[in-house]
Nucleic acid binder design. Structure first.
Length: 825
RNA sequence: GCCGAAGUGGCGGAAUUGGUAGACGCGCUGGACUCAAAAUCCAGUGGAGCUUAACACUCCGUGUCGGUUCGAGUCCGACCUUCGGUACCA
């Protein structure tokens, strides 16, 4: 018989809500635990498996912590601005605000059907004026600190749609809507100066309990490199420009220099004969993506400018080229090319027959050995004037020092990280709170005039300018300084701004006098456990760290990092690809909830595999979990009356009957395993342990018609088992807990079972006997049996004897409680 | 391309950190129950061979190739495939 999960789940969801059991008392900060899942993007219309995979197991972990006695705060909200809602609106004519509210209403119900312990009084919605008012406030804080500025930047532009395209809207270099080739157009954009925090963002990674891979990715993304800016003079014009290099020790090996095609000097220094070629080349490169340009397998291209540069240390003249593999925005937009010791330069020099001069000697080679490929590791300097014979490490310092002394070089630190471009020429976002007055210039909107409300009636169809520019009602305003007519900034903010501070808002989502209650934030932040997808490993997580640090420096926060501990759930793919509406491979969980219930479904998600690995979706095994929960349901209800009549009492190995002892051990082994695995997000193995326990227990009950197992002991085991199960199958556990006499909610009990550590040790182990590493026999011995004794057993073993007979024993390896390996010849 | 991961039975996966490969579950096969089916329960289940009423036994096996080691899914090197990110999807 199938257990009535529908009734049970509805009953408990209703009761939890009525009794307000998950309403968190934020004033109680003893054992506080802020468990946060990355909030939802309500883009499509429904929750999909990926959301459940994020939220279900995260809720299990939070419930587990609650049973351990923590005061757990687990909020939920919506990252509701963004491109998909706007695209949907362009396509269907449905206003993004309307589709978003409808989606949220639906999603909220789906979330409730999951049965998580969200405190709905703390919900946030980033597209609500009461929220984005404070997103604008965040912008202004950064603006006042000089961390927000305007600058020209290239954007993807479709000349036919007359609109800026997101990268995902560009398919093979063309607009996804009309197939027109996309061009790069320069527009004035707002930036956050995240690079000002590069060093701290890098350094504080050491403080975080984050997955190693995420820390590594952030570190590589920031991309710190220490080097020297070296000045080269242009022979023909006398202009000076700098190159950035981490290898000043190779300066004597420079045989040409390269300016990026976008380099501001390029036009100026190019000699008349070469102008046509160089500008045609720059035009060509403007269509290439950065990935293409920096590809290491693609054939590099470039052209000579006709000009020459003078090597500041050797006085040598070398040609100046421009090439696509040099990027304007990294370093100084120019490189000194040392083909002998840089792979890209080597390849380029070969292609264009530029000289290759060896200046670093690879250890173990001779200066006259031909160079087959670039040697990029350190070595000894040769062909380098007075530096000859110095090791790379010393040479780097020495050359840098000498250049600095004569003013031709400056030691610098360069980062790959770029400033955060946050303005969007779109409708569905938080307006940038800046006003332009003909007389007073660019001015921030005063805090007391926030929010700058996003008007509802706006034509958001793409026409070449920000949609808000066409709303006279929005654009025309008065100058906050002189009171004269002024115009608003018509761009909106990147949704990453909204999500860079939402974790602060959750503690006081309805507060309208401040972005957050500072006292509560002081007590509850930083987030203790942050759970979300690895696809956010760099951008969102880096932006949130940056905003936290900026608000700290503005005096609003007292901590340095927003997320103390981080866990990624893996990606659930479908047919090998990430689930997304655009790919049309989204799997809706609702039908599974309908058929099996939330407890089965969330448990299946946890049982599927390691939480941080995700995997390709398939529903084949779900029935196994459903059977498991059915068996638990039946096993408890068959003994309902008996169990209810049994008082709950602690047991020890001494008082249990001999027939119960192995179950006592199994129970405590299970408590240990489930506790450790749940804590560490190893849900799959915790569930397997619960199954093993249940299998062993029910066979024991069946074996002697239960005669060997007393009712008291049965109650003892089942009560604890239900507690272990509670975070995994909260509805069913509540139901069974009540059925056997529980009066309060199981989650009010805070009674995670204690583990009798001493009882978990096994009494006997199987030791294997190997001959030359191949297993030939096994025997059971008491735990801890000595090496000599094990060795003796192995040599006396009949099967082993067959394999060592007539051979010479070379060596014997004995590992206690594990194996004996006899090596013979 | 670059950065970061992952490859284990028919399938999802497990394996106290170098020491019994395949826990747990799905599926499949056989059996019990049933008029029958479903559900449930019991037993078996990596591949090949050999033997067989059965027990047992042998060889092979963790993406590919090579290495280190008494011993490698686990460590090292090279490669292949798949996934996430790559700064305007979030």
């Amino acid at each position: 018989m199938k257990y009535p999960f529908k009734e049970i789940e509805a009953k408990w969801q209703k009761r939890w809500e009525e009794e307000g059991i998950y309403k968190v008392d934020l004033s109680n900060t003893a054992c506080k635990l802020y468990a946060l899942v990355m909030f939802l993007y309500p883009s499509g219309d429904k929750l999909h498996i990926g959301h459940w995979y994020n939220y279900g197991p995260a809720d299990t972990w939070a419930r587990f912590k609650r049973l351990l006695g923590y005061n757990v705060f687990e909020p939920m909200g919506y990252d509701a601005f963004g491109l998909p809602a706007e695209n949907y609106a362009v396509k269907t004519g449905i206003h993004p605000g309307d589709s978003t509210s409808a989606n949220i209403a639906h999603i909220r119900e789906q979330l409730k059907s999951m049965g998580a312990m969200y405190d709905w009084d703390h919900e946030v919605n980033t597209s609500a004026p009461g929220y984005y008012r404070w997103t604008q406030w965040v912008f202004l804080q950064l603006y006042r600190m000089g961390l927000a500025y305007r600058s020209a930047a290239p954007v993807n532009w479709c000349p036919s749609c007359q609109t800026v395209l997101a990268n995902e809207q560009v398919v093979d270099g063309a607009c996804e809507r009309c197939d027109t080739p996309v061009i790069q157009k320069t527009m004035t954009q707002w930036f956050f100066r995240i690079t000002a925090y590069a060093e701290e963002l890098l350094r504080d990674l050491d403080k975080l309990d984050w997955p190693d891979k995420t820390v590594t990715m952030q570190r590589n993304w920031i991309g710190k490199s220490i080097g020297v800016d070296i000045k080269f003079r242009v022979k023909e014009t006398g202009d000076e420009f700098s190159v950035f290099t981490t290898r000043p020790d190779t300066l004597f090996g420079v045989t040409y220099v390269v300016l990026a095609p976008e380099h501001p000097f390029l036009r100026k220094i190019t000699t008349p004969d070469y102008r046509a070629v160089v500008s045609a080349y720059a035009e060509l490169v403007a269509h290439e993506t950065e990935i293409e340009r920096t590809s290491t397998i693609r054939v590099k291209t470039g052209v000579f400018t006709g000009a020459h540069a003078i090597n500041p240390i050797s006085g040598e003249e070398v040609p100046i080229w421009t090439a696509d593999y040099v990027l304007a925005r990294y370093g100084t937009g120019a490189v000194m090319a040392v083909p002998a010791h840089d792979e890209r330069d080597f390849e380029f020099a070969k292609k264009y027959s530029l000289p290759i001069r060896k200046v670093i000697l690879q250890p173990g080679t001779s200066p006259d050995d031909p160079l087959e490929a670039a040697y990029t590791d350190p070595g000894t300097m040769i062909n380098s004037g007075k530096y000859r014979g110095e090791k790379s490490k010393a040479g780097i310092e020495h050359v840098a020092e000498d250049l600095e002394r004569v003013g031709l070089g400056k030691r610098t630190v360069n980062y790959r990280l770029r400033d955060w471009l946050l303005s969007r020429q779109r409708y569905w976002g938080a307006p940038i709170p800046i006003v332009y007055c003909p007389g007073c210039g660019e001015l921030p909107v005063p805090d007391n005039q926030l929010p700058v409300v996003l008007p509802y009636n706006v034509d958001f169809k793409p026409t070449g300018e920000s949609p808000l520019a066409r709303s006279a009602e929005f654009v025309n305003t008065t100058c906050p300084k002189c009171g004269g007519p002024a115009r608003r900034d018509v761009d909106t903010m990147d949704t990453f701004v909204c999500s860079s501070w939402y974790f602060l808002r959750y503690v006081s989502p309805h507060l309208d006098s401040a972005p957050f209650d500072r006292e509560l934030v002081r007590k509850w932040l930083p987030v203790d456990k942050y759970i979300g997808g690895a696809e956010h490993a760099v951008m969102h997580l880096l932006y949130a760290r940056f905003v936290t640090k900026a608000l700290r420096d503005a005096g609003w926060l007292t901590f340095d990092e927003p997320f103390t501990s981080l866990v990624h759930q893996g990606t659930i793919t479908n047919n090998g690809a990430k689930m997304s509406k655009s790919r049309g491979n989204v799997v809706n969980p609702d039908s599974f909830i309908e058929r099996y219930g939330s407890d089965t479904f969330r448990m299946y998600l946890m049982f599927m595999g390691p939480y941080d690995e995700g995997g390709d979706w398939n529903d084949k095994g779900i029935v196994g979990l459903h059977r498991f929960l059915n068996r638990i349901h039946d096993m408890v209800l068959e003994r309902e009356d008996l169990l209810r009549s049994m008082p709950d009492r602690e047991m020890t190995p001494d008082i249990v009957k001999s027939g119960e002892r192995h179950l006592y051990r199994k129970l405590h082994q299970t408590i240990k395993k489930v506790t450790e695995d749940t804590e560490a997000f190893r849900f799959n193995t915790a569930v397997a342990a619960l199954m093993e326990m249940s299998n062993e227990f029910s066979s024991a009950l069946a074996a002697g018609d239960g005669a060997a197992i007393s009712p008291e002991f049965t109650a003892y085991v089942i009560r604890r088992f239900l507690l272990l199960l509670a975070p995994y199958a909260p509805h069913l556990s509540e139901e069974l807990h009540e059925a056997i006499g529980g009066e309060k909610s199981i989650f009010a009990s805070r009674g995670w079972p204690a583990c009798d550590e001493a009882a978990t040790a096994a009494e006997a182990v199987t030791v294997v006997a190997q001959v030359n590493g191949k297993i030939r026999s096994k025997f059971d011995v008491p735990v801890g049996e000595g090496e000599e004794s094990l060795k003796q057993r192995a040599f006396e073993d009949a099967k082993v004897k067959r394999w060592i007979e007539g051979k010479q024993v070379v060596r014997t390896i004995v590992v206690k409680n594990k194996l004996v390996n006899i090596v013979v010849k």
